[in-house]
Write a protein that binds this DNA or RNA. Structure first.
Length: 464
RNA sequence: UCCGGCUUAGCUCAGUCGGUAGAGCAAGCGGCUGUUAACCGCUAGGUCGUUGGUUCGAGUCCAACAGCCGGAGCCA
C-alpha cells in the first residue's frame, strides 16, 4: 500500500532531522533512526551502556542502549559525560526496562561536542534555583527550565491564537516613548551615545505601557492587542518584579467593563487549556518537582467561574474577616498584598475579579461610574501570584476626561493627541494588561519571576 | 528603599560549649549480565564571602561591607 501524504511528510521530517519527540511518540518498533541530542546521563555496565538523550523537543528522554563492543565505542566512552552532544544511530525496539515505551538499540555513536565533566557545571542531579540563576546561559539545558520555557512558548502562541480567533488585530506599539505621564512608575531614559542633544528632540523613555497607543489603534481597527516588552525602573526587589518584562494589552472598541471581564476570564482559561493540550509532560514534571498543587490549581482555574465582586464588597469581606491586618482596611485604601492573597487564596479559593475602585487610587483614564466615587477599574487576582491582570473601561467622555486630568494636576496639552481620540468619534471601550511572566509563573508553579524568563533583568542584574 | 535570613569542597549541606574541617552527590580509578538521578569499593578535592576586631586560639563571638534568598512597599 502506498504511504499516505501524512506518512510521507513524517518520513521526510523524521529521516533528516528526527526530533526525539517524534521518535518517542510516533516511532514504530523496527524503524531505524538517527537521534541527535545531549546526554542527560550515561550509565555503563560491562556489556551494555545506557545513554539518556534530550534535545529540548520534549520533557521525555530517549534511552539509547549501546553494546560495549560496538565499533568505535571504546574511543568515545570517556567522552560520554553529562552535557556532551551526541549522534546515535540504531533501530527502535520495545524497551524491556521500566520507564519508557521504546528505546533505541544503537549500533553507531559519535560525540559532536564534549562537555568536560570536571568543569561542566550541570550534573545529573538537582540543582538549586539560585545556582542555576548564576549560570543562566546553561540553565535551558535542565529539566525544569526546559519545561518552563516550553510552557512559555505555548502561552505566547495561545495568546495570538486566542485574540486572533476573536477578531483582535495584533498591533505593535512603540518601545521608545516621549510620554512620561502615564503614572505607571519610574522610567528608563533613552539616549544616543553619540548625540549630545535629545535624539528625538525631547526627552525619550522606554515604554511602561502600550495602552494609550493601543487605544488609538482600537479606534481604527476595532479590536487590537499588543504583546511586547515593557520596562519599569522601580527599585523593586521581589520575586514578582522585573525591570524588563512582556505585557499583553488588548483594547476593544464598544466594550464595557463587563465585556472586559468576560474577555479576561476567557483569555486566562484559554491559556490553561493550551498548556494542558501542548505541555502535558511538562506540567506533569512541574507538578512533581516544583509545585504539588499545580495541576489542581490550573484545573480549578480553568473549570470554575471566576468570582466577580466590587471593591466595596472586597472591603466588606476584609473588614469582617477574623484576621489581624498589617494594613488596616477601610473604604478608600488601596488593597495590599495580604488583602489580595486572602481574597484569592483563602476566602474564595479561586481567581477573583474586583471592579469599581475608588477613583482617587486609580488612573485618570478610567471610566467614571455614575456614583461619581468609583471608576470602572478591573483587577484580576489569582492564588499564589496576586494581581495578574489590571485593566478598565476607559473614559471616553471628553469633558469628564479633561476635568479628571486637570483635577490630577496634569496639563491638558501633554495629552493633546490622547484627547483627540475621544474628541472625534468616541465610543465606549475597554482593555487590560496582563504581565506575561506572571502568567508563566501561574502556569508552571515557579515562585520567582526571574526563573520564567530566560535572561532576567532586574535591579543590579543584567548579566548574560 | 525597609525588615529578616543565608554565605563552609564543583553541587547540596552538617560542623555541638571557641581548640586548626566532615557527609552525600559530582569527578578520577576499579568492579558489576539491562540500567532508570543505577549500584559497590578506593582516590583526590577547602585562603570556611571580604575586611577589621575580641581572644593564647575564630568556620564558630562582634562590627562594617558585598552578594544572594524570603517578605514588605511599588506594580503587571
Amino acid at each position: 500500500m502506498a504511504p499516505s501524504p501524512r506518512q510521507l511528510e513524517r518520513r521526510t521530517v523524521v529521516g533528516k532531522h528526527a526530533l526525539l519527540k517524534q521518535i518517542l511518540e510516533e516511532g514504530q518498533v523496527g524503524e531505524r533512526f538517527t537521534a541527535r541530542g545531549w546526554l542527560r546521563s550515561h550509565r555503563g555496565s560491562k556489556a551494555v551502556s545506557f545513554l539518556v538523550l534530550y534535545d529540548g523537543s520534549t520533557m521525555k528522554t530517549l534511552q539509547a542502549v549501546l553494546p560495549t563492543d560496538t565499533p568505535g565505542y571504546e574511543e568515545v566512552a570517556h567522552q560520554l559525560t553529562t552535557g556532551a552532544s551526541v549522534v546515535v544511530e540504531g533501530v527502535l525496539v520495545e524497551s524491556p526496562g521500566k520507564g519508557q515505551r521504546v528505546e533505541l538499540k544503537a549500533d553507531k555513536v559519535a560525540v559532536l561536542g564534549v562537555a568536560d565533566a570536571d568543569t561542566y557545571p550541570l550534573q545529573k542531579k538537582g540543582h538549586s534555583m539560585e545556582f542555576l540563576r548564576s549560570i543562566a546561559h546553561l540553565r535551558a539545558r535542565t529539566n525544569v527550565f526546559g519545561a518552563v520555557f516550553r510552557v512559555r512558548a505555548t502561552l505566547a502562541q495561545a495568546t495570538h491564537r486566542f485574540f486572533g480567533d476573536r477578531g483582535f488585530h495584533y498591533v505593535h506599539t512603540p518601545i521608545i516613548t516621549a510620554s512620561d505621564c502615564e503614572g505607571a512608575g519610574e522610567m528608563f531614559e533613552v539616549k544616543a551615545t553619540s548625540t549630545k542633544d535629545h535624539f528625538f528632540g525631547r526627552q525619550a523613555m522606554l515604554t511602561v505601557s502600550g495602552q494609550l497607543n493601543a487605544e488609538a489603534l482600537a479606534y481604527g481597527l476595532g479590536q487590537v492587542y499588543t504583546f511586547g516588552p515593557t520596562f519599569r525602573a522601580e527599585n523593586s526587589n521581589t520575586s514578582r518584579h522585573l525591570a524588563e518584562f512582556w505585557m499583553i494589552e488588548p483594547e476593544a472598541a464598544f466594550y464595557d467593563i463587563h465585556d472586559d471581564m468576560d474577555l479576561a476570564e476567557a483569555y486566562l482559561k484559554a491559556l490553561i487549556t493550551a498548556v494542558f493540550e501542548h505541555n502535558a509532560d511538562d506540567i506533569d514534571f512541574l507538578g512533581k518537582f516544583v509545585d504539588k498543587q499545580l495541576v489542581q490549581t490550573l484545573e480549578s482555574t480553568r473549570d470554575q467561574t471566576f468570582e466577580r465582586i466590587t471593591y466595596t464588597d472586597a472591603v466588606d469581606i476584609l473588614t469582617k474577616a477574623k484576621r489581624e491586618w498589617e494594613f488596616p482596611v477601610s473604604w478608600g485604601i488601596d488593597l495590599q498584598s495580604e488583602h489580595e492573597r486572602f481574597l484569592a487564596e483563602e476566602h474564595f479559593k479561586r481567581p477573583v475579579m474586583i471592579t469599581a475602585y475608588p477613583k482617587e487610587i486609580k488612573a485618570f483614564y478610567m471610566f467614571n461610574n455614575d456614583d461619581d466615587k468609583t471608576v470602572a477599574a478591573l483587577d484580576v487576582l489569582v492564588p499564589r501570584i496576586g494581581e495578574i491582570i489590571g485593566g478598565s473601561q476607559r473614559e471616553h467622555r471628553l469633558d469628564r476626561l479633561e476635568s479628571r486630568i486637570t483635577a490630577d494636576g496634569m496639563a491638558l496639552e501633554d495629552y493633546s493627541w490622547y484627547l483627540d481620540l475621544n474628541r472625534f468619534g468616541a465610543v465606549p471601550h475597554a482593555g487590560f494588561g496582563l504581565g506575561f511572566e506572571r502568567a508563566v509563573m501561574f502556569c508552571t508553579g515557579m515562585t520567582n519571576i526571574r526563573d520564567v524568563v530566560p535572561f532576567p533583568r532586574s535591579v543590579g542584574q543584567a548579566a548574560f
